[in-house]
Computed example of a mutant assay.
Amino acid sequence: MSGLTVSRRTVFTALGVGVGLGAIGLPTAASAAVAAWSNPTRGTLTSGYKIPSRPGHLGWDIANSQGTPVYATAAGTVRDIRTGSYPGDPTSGPLGGRTGNSVHIDHADSYFSYYGHLHRVLVSKGQWVLAGQLIGLMGTTGNSTGPHLHFEIHRPRLTSTDPRVFLANRGISLGSTAPMGSTGWPSVSQGTTSWVARTIQYLLRGRGVSTVVDGYFGPGTASSVRTFQSGRGLYVDGVVGPITWTALILPLQQGNSGDTVRGLQTALSARVGNVVVDGSFGAQTATAVRSFQSSQGLAVDGLVGPVTWSTLI
């Protein structure tokens, strides 16, 4: 994967939490027809459904950086979950196969969906979820060689169908169409030339990792990202995805200084304009932060926390 992915990620992912909606007052999967479908995530399609080399592969694999949000493809009830898995875990998930941390959802009209190899599960068994609701973060747990989502659709349960064809028939391009309600962190990898790459370079320097600040996410920057990821115990892929972003950023306020402030000022200059990149969080930077927060409907306090950072990037 190269370049700056256009997709945006949820603010809840930035905070590392998920918010489940209670079932009180909502219909159950048994009493409501499936009204809408959503793409479960965004990324690159890799291994396909029942391909000749893997006839027992009952879904599609969608690859992206660790921490990429995964969403419910339709409303329903969480039938089963698996947590506590790790890379190489030989234990099966709720469905047959070593799919690591996983979520199994019961939808209306006898449909089921399955999401495997998750880094984290953000829902609980028995929970009612809506189409496009955040249910987990992409990972590489179980039998996996890198971060990706293993996605299946069944009707009825244990009778699989090709999820790519199934969603295409509903106007959704698996891995490409924006999931319902997705906003937030982008995934940035080698080959990008932009203010976002420059921001990353300043944030790396702010975290004590040496890198050239030139706005080009080349091999040197990718190497610096891998150094940072290794030092923080993250998955080392050289890609700045949601988890790496949240490890890179720091809360900022007026009076702070340094390269992390330069990263903030670079982003503000691109989004608001006319912000001097001098590494000093003074009155002008504070005014720019408040102006941006106001334009985005955020709390206007001049403080740059995870929500302001994720909306800014």
Score class of each variant (00 low, 15 high):
L118I: 14
H119L: 06
V121F: 11
L122R: 08
L122A: 11
V123N: 11
G126H: 11
Q127G: 12
Q127Y: 07
V129Y: 13
A131Q: 15
A131M: 06
Q133G: 07
Q133S: 13
L137A: 07
L137H: 12
T140P: 00
T141N: 10
E152F: 03
E152D: 15
I153V: 15
R155G: 12
P156T: 12
P156W: 13
P156H: 10
P156N: 07
T159G: 15
T161E: 13
R164C: 00
V165Y: 06
A168M: 10
R170H: 12
R170I: 13
I172A: 01
G175D: 10
S176Y: 06
G181W: 11
S182Y: 05
T183Q: 12
T183N: 11
V188S: 01
S189K: 09
G191Q: 09
T192V: 13
T193P: 04
T193R: 13
V196E: 14
R198N: 03
R198D: 04
Q201M: 02
L203N: 03
L204H: 11
R205L: 13
R205E: 07
G206E: 01
G206Q: 10
R207W: 09
G208M: 05
V209T: 07
S210R: 10
T211W: 08
F217S: 01
F217H: 01
F217D: 00
T221E: 06
A222D: 03
V225T: 05
R226C: 01
R226W: 02
R226P: 03
T227D: 08
G231W: 01
Y235D: 08
G238P: 04
V239M: 07
V240C: 00
V240N: 05
